[in-house]
């Protein structure tokens, strides 16, 4: 396989535009995890005009709620959750500068339009491959909302994390 090596956060918009639906990639760098409960809290903070616990601009969110790490492990099982459930919150985050998302499953038309408008990319990680994907995560730190347990926001460092561009910044989707 000819995977493209991609560094995140992206250094330029051109790098995002060079990604096309169907590209297999290996992602390295840093990103933030957030799923249902964290998205709800972000949305509530934004509604009140308050700052988010992490910067959105140019960042990537991984829709992940990992299983607990055993002693000596960085993280437990760490595969993607269904992105579709985040669709209600996502356009607003894209308009605030979010550039990448990693998850699995379909996105709404509103999300795809916001991706095109802002030049963002949606990667699919393989659902149900959490043990394998955990090996590509080299650091994990809870940075907000520890009370949410698995749904807390984590900052992850990843190295050669396998993913597939499933919807690109032109709105082209690999899903039928």
């Amino acid at each position: 396989m000819n995977e493209k090596m991609i560094q995140i956060p992206f250094a330029s918009q051109e790098e995002i535009l060079a990604l096309h639906a169907g590209d297999e990639v290996l992602l390295s760098g840093t990103l933030y995890t957030a799923r249902d409960a964290a998205h709800k809290r972000m949305s509530e903070l934004l509604a009140k005009g308050e700052p988010l616990p992490f910067p959105l601009e140019n960042q990537t969110i991984y829709y992940l709620g990992p299983s607990p790490a055993r002693p000596g492990q960085v993280i437990g099982s760490a595969g993607p959750t269904t992105a579709t459930r985040m669709d209600r919150y996502t356009p607003q985050l894209l308009d605030l500068g979010l550039k990448g998302m990693i998850g699995k499953g379909r996105r709404s038309e509103d999300v795809v339009n916001a991706m095109i408008r802002n030049g963002a990319v949606y990667f699919a990680a393989i659902g149900g491959a959490g043990a394998l994907l955990s090996k590509a995560i080299t650091q994990s730190e809870v940075i907000a909302w520890e009370d949410l347990g698995t749904e807390a926001v984590r900052k992850l460092t990843i190295k050669n994390f396998p993913a597939i561009v499933v919807i690109d910044a032109a709105g082209k989707s690999l899903y039928t």
Binding site: L64, G65, P66, S67, R70, Q73, G76, S77, A78, G79, T81, G127, G128, A129, G130, A131, L132, S134, K135, T150
Partner: peptide, 13 residues
């Protein structure tokens, strides 16, 4: 990997 390293097959257990 899951079996050998005792990591759940999927994070959604």
């Amino acid at each position: 990997i899951a079996e050998n390293e005792q990591i759940p097959i999927c994070q959604d257990t």
